[in-house]
Computed example of a mutant assay.
Amino acid sequence: MDLLNVAGELSGTERQRLLGIRQVAQHQVRKQSVGYWDREEFPTELIGKLAELGLGGLQLGDSSHLLRGLIHAELARADISISSVVGIHNELVLGMIRDLGSEEQRAQWLGKLAGFEAYGAFALTEPEHGSDIAGGIRSTAQRDGDQYVLNGAKRWIGMGTFSDFALVWAKDEETSQVGAYLVEADRPGYSASKIEHKIGLRSMQNADIRLENVRIPVANKLPGVTSFAAANQLLMQSRAWVGWQAVGAMMATLDICSEYVAQRQQFGQPLAAFQLIQQPLAEIAGNLSACLSMMGDIARKQERAELHMVDAAMAKSTATRLARDSAALGRAMLGGNGIVSDFEMAKVFCDVEILHTYEGTYEINSLIVGRALTGVSAFV
């Protein structure tokens, strides 16, 4: 539900594309995703449907930032795990190779990635360093003739269990400069293991990755990465994308709750007739509309190349906070049925917890905004 008609700002062609994606997401992905989520299984079949829509190469097209954002929202509206796969694939893997890779790397991988014929993993976070990763990278790369030798460990790496390669952020032992290295998953010394027992984004296959004397050609180093500043640019855009995911989560909450309260009978009438139901529904709609408006502004800044980290941090922290509040209201509205995935709300409720935490925790993004407001850094 788009009460502000933000999609009305799209061109006619873009509106038609968005509508087509919405139809597929709602009728061929939404209900079908529940079983994959329950089993913690990657939804290969469902990703295939999105490949047919060209969503593996969303980042390569000439569509507007507003359309791309609304597409991410529509995917999250259907399933947040699947939207994470599409977003990370485009924003952090395909986009990184396109913008920071060599001609050879682009020629080898962009076509395959665009068709979801190959997957990559964005390997930045480490077991002991998450929020402080900018100064805490411990993974290393050592030059040895015409090769680099990589050692270290990475954690929470999306699609890391089955990706064809990982884009590993590591520190050059000789220069202490941070670089990025394309490491194929079949290299000796490279291993990935699935992180089990997650409460959310259960279809997303997060991994622990270990690098033990992994040798790669010098040509596998991404030439566009000469410092951690490159990672910050990527994270800025991905935080804006998570804001759109939060919009989709609120759309899903409103969809699920509106359908449920119209059908569920209590005390001889539909739940929708009760004030205690209408009030939280209105609050969820308000949260959604506020975030849609904010994310529309973010898209316009992106079009003008005027997006700054403080903008992305505020969008990510605010939208995920309101999505979390909305999901809590929605889960309560469904009563006991709100705690089982069969009714979908429990799945959204749990997935939103991950949105609140990943791509920079709520607290870290809030401190980025606080630093901009006060001129004083609260980071150690």
Rank of each mutant, 00 (worst) to 15 (best):
M1K: 10
L4A: 14
N5S: 15
G8F: 14
G12T: 13
T13H: 12
E14P: 02
V24D: 11
H27P: 00
V29W: 02
K31C: 02
S33M: 00
G35Q: 05
Y36M: 01
Y36L: 00
I47T: 05
L53A: 03
Q59E: 08
D62C: 07
R68C: 07
R68H: 04
G69K: 07
E74Y: 01
L75W: 03
A76W: 05
A78H: 00
I80H: 07
S83T: 12
V85H: 11
G101Y: 05
R106H: 06
Q108S: 08
W109R: 02
G111M: 02
L113V: 01
Y119N: 03
A121W: 04
A123S: 15
L124H: 09
P127V: 05
H129T: 06
G130D: 12
S131N: 14
S131Y: 12
D132F: 07
I133G: 08
I133T: 10
I133C: 12
A134V: 11
G135Q: 09
I137N: 07
I137L: 15
T140M: 05
G145M: 01
L150M: 13
L150S: 13
G152Y: 12
I157N: 05
T161V: 05
K171V: 15
E174F: 06
G179H: 11
L182G: 12
L182E: 12
R187F: 07
A192K: 07
A192V: 08
L201K: 04
A207N: 09
I209E: 12
I216F: 13
P217Q: 09
V218Y: 11
K221G: 09
P223K: 03
V225G: 01
A229K: 06
L234T: 15
W241T: 14
A246D: 04
A249N: 03
I256P: 01
L271V: 04
A272C: 06
A273V: 13
F274M: 15
L276S: 14
Q278V: 09
A282H: 10
E283P: 00
I284G: 03
A285R: 07
L288Q: 01
C291A: 06
S293Y: 08
I298S: 01
K301Y: 04
E303N: 03
E303W: 06
E306G: 08
L307G: 00
H308F: 09
A312S: 12
M314H: 13
M314R: 14
M314T: 11
A319L: 08
R321E: 14
A323H: 07
S326I: 10
A328V: 11
A328C: 05
L329C: 04
L329P: 01
A332D: 15
M333L: 15
L334C: 10
G335P: 09
N337H: 13
D351W: 11
E353W: 06
I354K: 14
L355I: 10
Y358S: 08
E359W: 09
E359G: 07
Y362W: 13
I364W: 09
S366D: 13
L367F: 08
V369N: 02
A372I: 02
L373R: 12
V376T: 11
A378E: 11
F379K: 07
F379Q: 09
